[in-house]
Design a protein around this nucleic acid. Structure first.
Length: 344
DNA sequence: TCTGGGGTCCTAGGACCC
DNA sequence: TCTGGGGTCCTAGGACCC
């Protein structure tokens, strides 16, 4: 039997969870984001397929979404509800007794040996639906990259297979941004080198790309374009590197004393979240986005790794005091980096 | 398109050491 | 006495993803 990788991706996950408890909204354009008030600063987390017809998708500003689709139903983000739904989905996937890797709330990779991958994919969809009443799409591939990209072609509610043989016929003429890991910035850099399509990138010289985008990233991009991605599906639990809290103010804050008070409150709430027996924090980083929209960070490495609230607060203030230009602040964030586990 | 919140990994330059 | 080369860590920023 052959080894296949399956990528399970929930359809309009957040919107679908909301529709489960508000069935009367089914068929309407539903937009989930921020605190549900589309006149405030914030972006769309997920829009229902009905709303997407109006150009409202993930990442669009709520105010823009309101203009494009004024009759949409706007709902606040309810993290706890999505995490609970996600747990049910992942439990259903693990019930197959094969390795399940969970890179995000609404998606998972599964490795399994089978000669009938489509049949297994349909089994996955059935089991998820029975456990959660939610729909998903399943991509099938010979590695994680192929499976991940295949899902896109299966959406919504379908199954699609992508292999070494079909990779270039299906993706070769697509723009480089079709690949997972290439965004607008990298696509633009590649275009400047005359690389526009996946096929162009697959044929590019890795050394030349290394000089353009970095020693690791360059050769990796070529490998991506060839449809290779040689990492195994790993069922081992995710070990967090960091934990952060950030807040975008509804109006920019010009009073530096107020920014400082907001920081203290942020770092205290962050400390409360991470004191439950995790690894100690070795470094605290403060992030400030100034008006109109440029971001700076300053960090402070603690004298010794700790989970003590006072030490985290003091560390955050040391980092904060390295910001010397008091300009109006749009966003304030604080990040705790955990002590790294020593390998070997 | 006036741009959230929570993450991850990579890059490049400087410090520091031998 | 004006100066090599390699390794590694730290730091800030960039890019990307969901």
């Amino acid at each position: 039997m052959a080894e296949w990788v399956f990528h399970v991706d929930m359809d309009q996950f957040i919107a679908a969870v909301e529709l489960l408890r508000r069935p009367e909204l089914t068929g309407l354009p539903v937009v989930v984001g921020g605190d549900g008030d589309p006149t405030k600063r914030g972006v769309v987390s997920t829009a229902s397929y009905e709303a997407r017809k109006y150009g409202v998708g993930s990442g669009v500003a709520l105010r823009t979404a309101l203009k494009r689709c004024p009759h949409a139903v706007f709902l606040p983000v309810d993290r706890d509800a999505y995490e609970a739904a996600s747990e049910l989905v992942m439990a259903a996937l693990r019930s197959f007794g094969v390795p399940v890797e969970v890179p995000g709330w609404d998606e998972a990779f599964i490795a399994s040996e089978t000669d009938r991958p489509e049949a297994f994919a349909h089994q996955i969809r059935l089991r998820v639906r029975l456990a959660t009443r939610l729909e998903c799409s399943v991509g099938i591939g010979q590695n994680k990259l192929q499976a991940k990209i295949a899902t896109r072609y299966g959406k919504p509610g379908g199954v699609f297979r992508l292999t070494h043989e079909t990779w270039f016929p299906i993706l070769g003429a697509e723009p480089t941004q079709a690949l997972w890991g290439i965004g607008t910035k990298t696509a633009r850099k590649l275009a400047a080198l005359g690389i526009h399509t996946v096929s162009d990138l697959a044929a590019a010289d890795p050394d030349k790309l290394a000089r353009a985008v970095g020693p690791t990233t360059g050769p990796w991009l070529v490998e991506l374009a060839c449809g290779g991605w040689h990492t195994r599906v790993s069922a081992s639990p995710h070990v967090a590197r960091s934990r952060s809290r950030e807040i975008t103010f509804q109006a920019d804050i010009a009073d530096w004393g107020e920014v400082r008070r907001e920081l203290i409150s942020l770092v205290r709430s962050l400390a409360d979240e991470i004191t439950d027996g995790r690894r100690p924090v070795r470094r605290v980083v403060v992030k400030i986005r100034f008006a109109p929209f440029f971001t700076h960070t300053h960090g402070h490495t603690l004298a010794a790794p700790t989970l003590a609230r006072d030490a985290l607060e003091a560390g955050a203030l040391v980092a904060f005091d390295r910001f010397t230009e008091p300009r109006p602040v749009r966003l304030l964030g604080v990040q705790a980096e955990f002590e790294r586990l020593r390998s070997s």
